[in-house]
Design a protein around this nucleic acid. Structure first.
Lengths: 200, 200
DNA sequence: CGCCGATGTGTACATCGTATACTCGCTCCC
DNA sequence: GGGAGCGAGTATACGATGTACACATCGGCG
């Protein structure tokens, strides 16, 4: 269950806490997610939060985890084109949608040191990163079909992911004086060039 | 004058403050750079710092600026190969040297919202980013010589820079379970693939 | 009934950035 | 040479923040 749906009133206290924290995060950034503010939003004492989360870091961690779940859900629910390259570009679009809709959450997910973050290459090859799995599958199929040269699939997925993440972070931290559509187009061109580099 | 040299005792107070803050940053990260700790290291009152820096953000900003200066100096001082592609790879190496030697500073420079950060494309095309200028020059020459297809030089520089920055951040935040040499090799391969995508 | 674990409260403390008011000591100018 | 002014540093204080610790409440179960 993604916290993104902002659970209803009947939810457990832990869920209500996470939902309130998520709203604060989306609206005002991670620094604004203070124990006191979250507690006030839920209607309990700051210290009561510690019954449900070990500390502030754990609460933020839960938000990030929920973010990954939501992103995975979106990718899973989307109707992806069959052709590998078009599928890759569609995944790119979905990724950008998410990053631009929920920039603060994105920062939290991809930009902070987190305990338990997936590690390359082990966790990725083992399929523990759901978001990377989708790209890897498409890329693998492209190689099988002969569109792409045989190469290290996971390394390519990781590198393109890093590029995308880098571009988004630069965009979110104000390094792009271009409109959002232009930024999206730039991302597509950047990925396309990388793919050009591995064509058979 | 790069603050990295950690100015001698005869330096101005502002320089001594910046040096002390730089040491704290390198050793214990940006969160550890508190006004009180910096002041103690310098031997003055916390409030005295405000005679030299408007606030904590300005102090951190000065550290980042000095970092850019140092990186620029390093690039300028290095003997770069003449051949465009080899030159690009050398720049990559120097960039990685810097990032891996001073990871906390790197984070500060590339990972935080900063007032006055250069913006794409205007500031870059205008040559205001010294680090990007070196890559752009090499790439341009490669295009002139016919090794690379004619394309948007600055966009490519920016995208490859984003990729590198993304990879480094993933490495620094513990997403890589590989040795440093392996990480460096992976970066080289990633950039190489991108360059493959723009060969004539 | 007694009790116990889960949940929440109240109070308190250390740490942080920084506003405000002050005290010097030096230089400059008449 | 003697005050005016100023740059540098100090002292104190305030409001946030994370969270430790001791206590209250309450529902279910023996």
């Amino acid at each position: 269950m993604a916290y993104g749906v902002y659970a209803a009133a009947s939810a457990s206290t832990a869920q209500r806490i996470q939902a309130a924290a998520g709203r604060l995060l989306d609206r005002r950034g991670a620094e604004a997610v203070t124990m006191r503010r979250v507690a006030e939003a839920v209607g309990i004492t700051p210290m009561a939060l510690y019954r449900h989360f070990a500390n502030r870091a754990a609460l933020l961690n839960a938000l990030a985890d929920a973010g990954f779940e939501e992103l995975t859900e979106r990718l899973g629910a989307a109707r992806l084109p069959a052709a590998p390259e078009r599928r890759l570009m569609k995944i790119l679009d979905l990724f950008l949608d998410f990053a631009l809709e929920r920039p603060r959450l994105f920062e939290l997910m991809f930009l902070t040191r987190r305990p338990g973050a997936r590690q390359f290459p082990g966790d990725f090859r083992a399929g523990k990163s759901p978001t990377a799995r989708f790209s890897a599958a498409a890329l693998e199929e492209g190689m099988r079909q002969g569109a792409f040269r045989k190469d290290d699939v996971w390394e390519i997925v990781f590198a393109t992911g890093a590029m995308l993440q880098g571009l988004v972070m630069l965009y979110l931290t104000g390094r792009f004086a271009v409109s959002e559509p232009e930024f999206r187009a730039l991302c597509r061109r950047a990925i396309r060039r990388y793919l050009n580099g591995i064509r058979a």
